[in-house]
Design a protein around this nucleic acid. Sequence first.
DNA 1: TGCGGATATGCAGGCGAATCGATGGTGTAG
DNA 2: CTACACCATCGATTCGCCTGCATATCCGCA
Lengths: 126, 126
Amino acid sequence: MDYVGTALAETSLPAISPLAGEPIERADAERLAGVLKALADPARLRLLSLIQSAPEGEACVCDLTAPLGLSQPTVSHHLRILTEAGLLEREKRGVWAYYRLVPTAIGAIADLLTPPRKRATKKAAR
Amino acid sequence: MDYVGTALAETSLPAISPLAGEPIERADAERLAGVLKALADPARLRLLSLIQSAPEGEACVCDLTAPLGLSQPTVSHHLRILTEAGLLEREKRGVWAYYRLVPTAIGAIADLLTPPRKRATKKAAR
DNA sequence: TGCGGATATGCAGGCGAATCGATGGTGTAG
DNA sequence: CTACACCATCGATTCGCCTGCATATCCGCA
């Protein structure tokens, strides 16, 4: 999906929660769905978890293939999806490519899904 | 995916966050991915949003087909996915089937994705 | 009892996604 | 300079999912 792209990094998320106020627009739904789709995969969830729990909060591809039981191209593919979704950032040091979590990325998604809170939607809609 | 089923309602979510402590197990990753996969669709996000913003917090299929621009069977299909994922509950009154959000469902997902906080690993008494 | 409207289900077409093997590119070591 | 290790990309295959049409089921009403 191209509408994903660096969804979180640049285009940013819908800005309005699907669970607050008015129904969301189609475009917003597609952007949010794109990011969620990047999350909605067992291998990618485990990748995020592995990277997060790694010594320095970072890990290279060679450390991730074995725990996942997936081939190196497949792992590289998933890391690409997560990076393009804005959930991971990549840093190449020598031959190794180190991935780490983008700190605020997943929290932003969680916020969108946590609307019942007394988020200050101070506009007097009614 | 059958491992979804009433994932939230009965099997419940992984109980441990993919972003806290140790890497998550494959089974937990698959359960969480199953629920997220139910969310990761534009039509279903809009459905949740439409139902949430409906007058009584509930809506029947006939009210949802037009705003989505999808056929009635397709809408019914998406509602089924969301219900099996534990995100919606269905109540049949007469000929109509009313859907409403399961209050704590989405919040539970959001909590799993909001671990970067130094949440006390101890469960705080309510 | 029979009719009509509201939903759910079956079936199938089409598209996107996950996976792997092979390949190419790029540093590092010897 | 050469060989090797790490990683990304390409091509191909398989699989699952979204969608609609047709049909079945259910319920209220006349």
